[in-house]
Write a protein that binds this DNA or RNA. Sequence first.
DNA 1: AACTTCTTACTTTTT
DNA 2: GTAAGAAGTT
Length: 824
Amino acid sequence: MSSFSEDDAFEAAAAPANRPSLSQMAMGARPTPYLDGLNPAQREAVETLDGPVLMLAGAGTGKTKALTCRIAHLLNTGRARPDEILAVTFTNKAAREMKDRVAGLMGQSVDGVRWLGTFHAICVKQLRRHAELVGLKSNFTILDTDDQIRLLKQLIRAADMDEKRWPARQLAGLIDGWKNKALTPAKLGAADEMAFNDKGKTLYAQYQQRLKDLNACDFGDLLLHMVTIFQNHPDLLEQYQRWYKYILVDEYQDTNVSQYLWLRLLAQGHRNICCVGDDDQSIYGWRGAEVGNILRFEKDFPGAKVVRLEQNYRSTPHILAAASSVISANAGRLGKELWTAEQDGELVRLIGHWDGEEEARWVGEEIEAMHSGTRSRLRKFSLDEQAILVRASHQMRAFEDRFLTIGLPYRVIGGPRFYERLEIRDAMAYFRVVISPEDDLAFERIINVPKRGVGDKAMADIQITARTNGVSLKEGARIAVQDGLLKGKAKTGVAQLIDQLDRWSSLCVQQIRVDGVADEDAVIERDEEPAEISHVELAEMILDESGYTTMWQNDKNPDSPGRLENLKELVKALEAFDNLGGFLEHVSLIMDNSSEEQGEMVTIMTLHGAKGLEFPVVFLPGWEEGLFPSQRSMDESGQKGLEEERRLAYVGITRAEELCTISFAGNRRVYGQWQSQLPSRFIDELPPEHVDVLTPPGLYGGGYGAASSGGFDSGAASGMSTGFEDRVSKADGYNSPGWKRLQSRSQRSGAATNVRSGSGSMTIDAKASAVFTVGDRVFHKKFGYGQVMELDGDKLTIDFDHSGEKKLVASFVVPADKASDVPF
DNA sequence: AACTTCTTACTTTTT
DNA sequence: GTAAGAAGTT
């Protein structure tokens, strides 16, 4: 086992001697031009180098700038050598950006900052060094979710449980959750032990044992193992504590318990830890993030300096005001108020639509109008400058459909990532078995892909053979073939596969790196002795000879050509690596979306995916109760869930630089069933004076109180102006001037946005109660005829003859005798 | 063993 | 409404 200091000595010696190190260059007085562009708060965050610092950085306040300047400053002042800085991010993208920007500031590449990376990448690096302390070998493999599920399925089956009642997915979720909380099987609480049909703890323990047997770990283990190691080996921990003089953490509000413990252990030495985050942007609670970590920072690190970055450089005042107003409804915030030096800007726009398709149509027209510059007062916006941010990915389809028909180019971000695609994982599984013949999970994945006549029976036989002989699945299969256990198609198929695998492996042997620890930072250009066959050729050979390529060529699914394309891309990606092994190591951690798009396109993505991004024009559709805030979130996590949804709304609004448009639909098809939708309560939390309402009031409820109860009655009805009444055009259902104007507005896209003088003076609740009384027969375009059961402000509870009871906004129905008047 | 029909359940997602 | 997974059929 290599001790830490030996490693360091080795690495220090191996450092190129012909180039002055950053710290050498940093000796003596150096100019600090990078400090000049900072505002006072940023500067304080950058210059407070010693002791714990919490940087509360609101959206768009230049947090990455401050973070990267801080690193540059640490190096520049000679406080730390590049490798004495530990800088952690959540995503590879963020890590890359930080590296690039520090390099930009320093005017040179910063390869020396070896400990800048994601939590997982850094933990892998550490764990490879100390794997034996948790019973693993240094070359352990990292399982992805798919492998994980397959393994758990086997365990559940072995435990004789009903796979339907006790799905492996659910168990995987539980185990992930425990690992996020740094709970090993031994540390599980009583309730958790009994989870999953009383088998929670047992199965978890079995799973961990299986992982150890396979010399593998999952993503959660990377963190958890390191925490365990540090907790059990104080001497080792101390070395690391001494080593990392300065620690920086990005997106601290997203850390889970394991990550928190890991950080806290490492920071106990020098206590120079700088955590950057925004409690208002904590949107990953559902995957174990603990907002509590950031809320507790000052207690964890007494004497911590708290710096607030509140000057926003991204959005207009109206956008900021809307975001602030929404988020202020949350309790227990650390408190921050964004402000901007900007004066001008558009109001946040709010519009309601009849249904989801209408919403998509309108957004499409708006995007085209923005693009062609026909929107008066506003500049032209390229498609790249516009984005649609949805709560859930299924909302994307309506927009895709619409954009396809009108020929508006778009890009969807957040689909299945390249390396998560079926064909890529299959190919990778082939590579894995070739490199490590004992990789049972990979072997299992490919043994019958393409079809080799291996079914449940044959597979079970192979499993048993392997187990009784105590060998890998591949060897078990070999024995099963020799012993005549397999018959017919399966026999020939498996025999051929094994021969092929053996041959590929032998071709691969000379390529396996001897140093074992493949460093992802290793220079990729390093020339190796050209093997008889390059790893790229080998990969092509594997895919061709195995029949895998042929399988997709013969497949007549419309997506097969795409899959073949992806396989070609995979082979191309290989070229950047020395060998297959190095490539696999890289891929297991870096699940990047390697898509080089061309041309201008509108971006469609989820709110989660948009965190950290910004767009001049942002559309936020689907602000409806149940969809956003998501019903499930509220059901599962109650008030906490609602607040996280609200933070998501905050994230969404603050993505917009110049124009933010929120919309909702009154009707939406959910799981194939038409449902009437109520406007989101978040809409009521928007500040009226900063909102431009493009909607006839009936569509959203006229003012406050769409869903948050009472607000409407006590506000509008009692004569207390909520602000929206004056701004909106008055309408009374389908035939109202307001509704007509909305329709025509979207047809002539050049119409000015802020012409909305009221034509009537009655508010819609007055109208609703004036027009409808309990017992009235009404007609609704989608639900047909029904009877009014209850009145609630502008909303009616209606018992529909065919669709049952529903609560909806009054303007969606007309008296039954006016049914024929309903347009379209 | 492979193909077909039926049931069921359904956020958000990085590593 | 759809996609995945399980049961049922060839």
